[in-house]
């Protein structure tokens, strides 16, 4: 699904004469955060790989589940592969987790529901 796994299996890459060594180098480059540069060497792969700038631009939408133009898989693939961008994803995630954790325990006081019921029966319908 991701560009990384496509690279490992793509018959096209092999047809083009990439030997085993260059594949390993490519993979290392992908894992090492130079993903974008490595991928753009090959026009065929570059269309699937987004730049760091693009990834950062859509980071909030990605975390909000509100991407409207770029497939989620593609964004996820970038953050999985890019050492430089990955911490940003983690940072924003840690922030959201903290906000959620701090507020989820809050519930209405037990007697509020009873008060509401009483209020409504007084109000009639």
């Amino acid at each position: 699904m991701t560009t990384r796994s496509r690279w490992a299996t793509s018959p096209i890459a092999q047809e083009r004469g990439h030997n085993a060594m260059s594949m390993i180098e490519k993979l290392r480059a992908l894992l090492g955060g130079a993903a974008v540069k490595a991928a753009t060497e090959d026009g065929h792969e570059s269309q699937d790989m987004m730049s760091c700038e693009q990834a950062i631009t859509v980071l909030q939408e990605f975390l909000d589940g509100e991407l409207d133009q770029i497939p989620e898989d593609q964004v996820r693939a970038h953050f999985d592969a890019c050492e430089r961008c990955y911490p940003y994803l983690k940072f924003e995630g840690a922030f959201r987790d903290a906000v959620t954790r701090a507020t989820t325990g809050q519930t209405a006081p037990p007697d509020l529901r009873a008060k509401l019921m009483e209020l409504m029966s007084q109000a009639g319908a």
């Binding site: 950062i56 983690k90 940072f91 906000v99 954790r101 701090a102």
Partner: peptide, 29 residues
Amino acid sequence: PAVNPIWSSVLGADPEGDFFESIVDGRIV
């Protein structure tokens, strides 16, 4: 700007925002 300025503040010390975990609920609220 898409780049969060705070990312550079935490770069050397806590790039993944682990500090958020240490902050008590009341303070976040």
